[in-house]
């Protein structure tokens, strides 16, 4: 199953659900930024951009991913110096890398630029002790994801 939105294409592996939208810009006339959520649990309608409302429902083997795009003029800043979609490994995950730390949860966060677009990739795993399997699950999703130019 494929999801395409605003230059991002995701061929969802089995067991994933995804949503994408273009955020209403903060200032009139500015372009909208992409927000993509993917998870191995159902995505409720009301979700925080970095997963509140979803991560609370993660089981030990579940994963939540947020691909959050920044304003185009943010590209080029030091924070986004890394290039291309990351490939998170087990060592990238920590129980502290969470907007809201939750018992057993584990998170990873990456800032990067792809196709001249600045992004943050935030991944939450339902279990830190199972982060190796969780990282592999995320890896399959990201391997099936491409980021193209902003339309």
């Amino acid at each position: 199953m494929r999801l395409e939105h605003a230059g991002v294409v995701v061929d969802l592996p089995a067991g994933w659900e995804a949503r994408a939208r273009t955020q209403a810009p903060s200032r009139a006339g500015a372009g909208g930024n992409l927000l993509l959520h993917a998870a191995t649990v159902p995505l409720p309608p009301a979700r925080g951009d970095f997963g509140s409302g979803v991560v609370e429902t993660l089981g030990p083997d579940d994963v939540f991913v947020s691909l959050f795009e920044y304003d185009l003029e943010d590209a080029g800043k030091a924070l986004f110096a890394a290039s291309g979609l990351p490939a998170p490994g087990p060592s990238d995950f920590s129980t502290a890398v969470l907007q809201r730390t939750q018992r057993n949860h584990s998170g990873a966060q990456f800032f990067f630029t792809a196709s001249r677009r600045p992004f943050c990739l935030h991944v939450v795993l339902g279990s830190h002790s199972r982060r190796a399997a969780g990282a592999a699950t995320v890896g399959r999703l990201l391997a099936a994801t491409t980021v193209g130019a902003r339309p």
């Binding site: 199953m1 939105h5 949503r19 209403a24 159902p42 995505l43 309608p45």
Partner: peptide, 13 residues
């Protein structure tokens, strides 16, 4: 039905 306005989605669940 759970989509927010302006949202596109896909699910295998």
């Amino acid at each position: 039905a759970a989509l927010e306005p302006g949202e596109v989605g896909a699910s295998t669940l």
